[in-house]
Amino acid sequence: MLELVDISAGYGPTDVLHGISMVVPDNSVYAVMGHNGAGKTTLLKTVMGLISPRSGRILLDGEDITRTKPHQRVARGMAYVPQGQVSFGQLTTFENLQLVADGRNNGRAKIEEMFHLFPALEMYQTRSAGLLSGGQRQQLSIARALITEPELIILDEPTEGIQPSVVAEIEELIVSLSKTGLSVLLVEQHVGFALTASAEYAVMASGRVTSRGSGGQAAIESVVAAMSI
């Protein structure tokens, strides 16, 4: 699905990522863990094309997409749910969804599908997205990503700062997405959930992968050990 080959990237003169390589397999969750400042968000931004890598290559289904723009990556089947539940606050909930449904033949049907998945969004469809709660905005952000019918969805700490009742829902959704044929690249601080959901994982520290392996609860000790270094 997605392959990163020796990616180095950063902001201005500061290097953040140093030679990251990883393969996100088809139809499964790949979890990236690590402390704050490890470079996880920078990694996702680079994967999405918001940051150009200084060196290395990004391959999607074997095709080099290193120099493509973010919107072109979306057209190729990538979707991104950024950190912090960001939405277009001045657009209504419905407009936020319309924005990505525009130009798709099944746009209207996809929006209905999302309303079915997240009833709160239907209830508040005429409300400005800026007035939704954090959990609702995260649902909106995920719905916006799913409308584009991605093959790979990139989630940056999707449950951070969200009320517990919604966290469980989002976690369930992530697991079910991978079962419907989607690849998921998940950045997650919550090690327990990340390992339960993922087939493979990587732990990052200071812009490098320090540990990697197969997911599942059995890996929890080695991950905790890797993260406490």
Binding site: P70, H71, Y80, S87, F88, T148
Partner: peptide, 17 residues
């Protein structure tokens, strides 16, 4: 809608396609 989206958040607009 696209104009309003880009005005509000350029980076997010790119990443939603």
């Amino acid at each position: 809608r696209r104009v309003r989206a880009v005005v509000q958040n350029r980076e997010l607009a790119e990443t939603v396609g």
